[in-house]
Simulated scan of single mutants.
Amino acid sequence: MAVFTSVSLDDLGPWMTQFPLGKALAIKGIASGIENSNFFITTEAGEYVLTIFENLDFEQLPFYLKLMRHLADRGVLVPAPIANAQGELVVALHGKPAAIVSKLDGSSQMAPQPQHCAGVGTMLARMHIAARDFSIQQPNLRGLDWWRVTAPVVLPFLSDSNQQLLRDEMQYQEAFASSAEYAAFPRGPVHADLFRNNVMFDGERLTGFFDFYFAGCDTWLFDVAVTVNDWCIDLDSGALDLTRVDAMLQAYQAVRPFSDEEHRGWQAMLRAAALRFWLSRLYDYHLPRDAEMLTPHDPGHFERILRLRTTIAAPELP
């Protein structure tokens, strides 16, 4: 993620003594994304990831870290949070909440093929099922309530055409979220940000999902739509690649079959997923925060995706 809070090896050394990982040997900032400060750290026990949370507080963080532990204990491939000597998963560093998790093997697959999409679909369905009995409830903090607050803030920065697109889509999503069909969607904890850079592969073997810090309780279909809108598209145009879409959805369906209501609401969720990331990118682009390594994403990418999802019928769920 972008580095908002700097951490040196001298800073890290004394702080690390509370963890069962030995001496800190090296630290390197990770310059991707725009939410938290992430670092690769090397210790005498191996390689890990340190995250300093810039927006989430100490009260919110147990949901994310305990969810990751819950999933790991049930065979879902996610980073394992490391507790300190007092059993705490979240500890202050430079006055901000921080956590250490295990580092996954492999690398991100930025040019996914159908077999990669199938692997993601299988693991996403397994994640949803495994999280059904997770006891902590927390809403998706970038869901409809956040859209309602954020849309008026970014609206003045938009062209007339984009203002109309945003108003129309907000009206559509408000209406759909009030429908009986939406209320019947299966739901539970979701990743909510499962982009290509948040999944690791070793060749064609999926080695893990990470960056759960947008997770929350929402509809599972929204999570699928977010994932399809990144993994199964042509990046230049935003158009769906039907072969990759089919591979991901068939693999997901084989583990967790879609409901009748989900079949009928699929297009609406693809639109919702596009709107969510268009809004967040608009906000980050027009109202940026200072950071040592910050590269806001182009909001035009998800504008294009949203326009396509509102005008071209998506392939049906299997």
Rank of each mutant, 00 (worst) to 15 (best):
A215Q: 00
T207L: 09
F209K: 02
G203T: 08
L221V: 11
E181D: 14
A239P: 01
F212R: 00
T219R: 08
A184V: 04
L221H: 04
A239M: 10
Y252N: 11
Y182W: 13
F210W: 01
F176T: 03
T207D: 09
A180D: 13
F201M: 01
G188I: 10
P189I: 05
D223C: 14
G238M: 07
T219M: 12
G203N: 10
M248Q: 08
S259P: 12
A177N: 13
A215F: 00
F185A: 05
D241A: 13
S179H: 09
C232D: 02
S178W: 01
Q253D: 14
S178L: 14
P189S: 11
N197K: 08
V255S: 02
P257E: 12
W220G: 15
F222T: 05
V190D: 02
T207V: 10
A239V: 09
R244I: 07
F212V: 02
A251T: 08
F201H: 00
H191G: 11
E181T: 09
N198V: 10
F222R: 03
A254D: 09
Q253Y: 04
Y252P: 12
L235C: 07
W231N: 06
A175T: 15
V190F: 03
A239W: 01
G238T: 03
G188C: 13
F185M: 07
T243Y: 06
P186W: 08
I233H: 00
E204R: 01
Q250K: 06
G188Q: 07
F176E: 13
L240A: 07
A184T: 12
G216L: 06
F209G: 03
F185Y: 14
D202Q: 13
D260L: 13
F185D: 02
Q253A: 15
T243W: 02
F214M: 06
G208I: 07
L242N: 12
D234C: 07
W220A: 15
F212H: 01
W220Q: 09
L249K: 11
F212Y: 10
D236H: 04
A247D: 10
D260M: 07
D260N: 09
V245Y: 14
V224H: 01
G203V: 09
V255D: 04
V228R: 00
V190E: 06
V226Q: 04
N197G: 12
G238S: 04
